[in-house]
């Protein structure tokens, strides 16, 4: 016994945190928020481009977690569980207020950034080309954008993406492949600009 608290070690497993949280342990609750709030927010805003709305969803998600903590099933990955739960909440709430938010929905402002290595290229991008890329990304369905976000931004495995989005692994692979193909067709001229990255 070292006398250190349960969260002092780096190697506390998700299951352990989850168990303590289910027992009503405040520190575990805070730990979960601290470790996942940012991720949830960036994932949330990839599905719904409305910061206040996503924050409300995260707020309610954490309230739900607390109120239902005793009934929650065990999880192997807290992050995946939260992603899935947030996704359900956002889609449910969006469906409810569809008439109100239709505008936001249609004018989805697809956002992306350039990694630091490609910043140089970024600067070379003309406004027109950037617009083209954005249009290409915008032409994807919400589901395609989401899958791409989880796969390439959050670096989830196919299996994990499948679990969050709620489709089979095979369907996930297909969904992503189709999205990539669509993007590539539209972006081909832009992509050529990246040829200098690797040299």
């Amino acid at each position: 016994m070292t006398g250190s608290g349960p969260h002092a070690g780096v190697n506390v497993s998700d299951q352990q945190i989850w168990q303590e949280f289910k027992k009503g342990e405040d520190t575990a609750y805070a730990f979960i928020y601290k470790n996942h709030a940012q991720d949830l927010y960036s994932y949330g805003t990839s599905i719904a481009n409305d910061s206040a709305f996503v924050k409300d969803c995260i707020h309610d998600l954490f309230l739900d977690l607390w109120q239902r903590r005793k009934k929650l099933a065990d999880v192997s990955s807290i992050r995946l569980y939260l992603f899935k739960a947030l996704r359900n909440k956002i889609l449910k709430e969006k469906a409810k207020r569809k008439p109100l938010r239709a505008e936001v929905e249609d004018n989805y402002n697809f956002q992306f950034e350039y990694s630091s290595e490609s910043l140089m290229i970024h600067n070379q991008f003309s406004e027109e080309r950037r617009k083209k890329l954005r249009l290409a990304l915008e032409s994807l369905t919400q589901r395609q954008r989401e899958a791409i976000f989880l796969k390439f931004y959050k670096k989830l495995s196919y299996k994990e993406v499948a679990a969050v989005v709620g489709i089979t692994q095979k369907a996930t692979y297909k969904l992503l492949a189709r999205s990539i193909q669509m993007l590539r067709n539209k972006m081909i001229s832009i992509i050529l600009l990246f040829l200098t990255i690797f040299s």
Partner: peptide, 15 residues
Amino acid sequence: EEAIGVIKTLKFKNN
């Protein structure tokens, strides 16, 4: 190189 380009482009804005 093209594949790398696509993957890197697919980085979303990190809100």
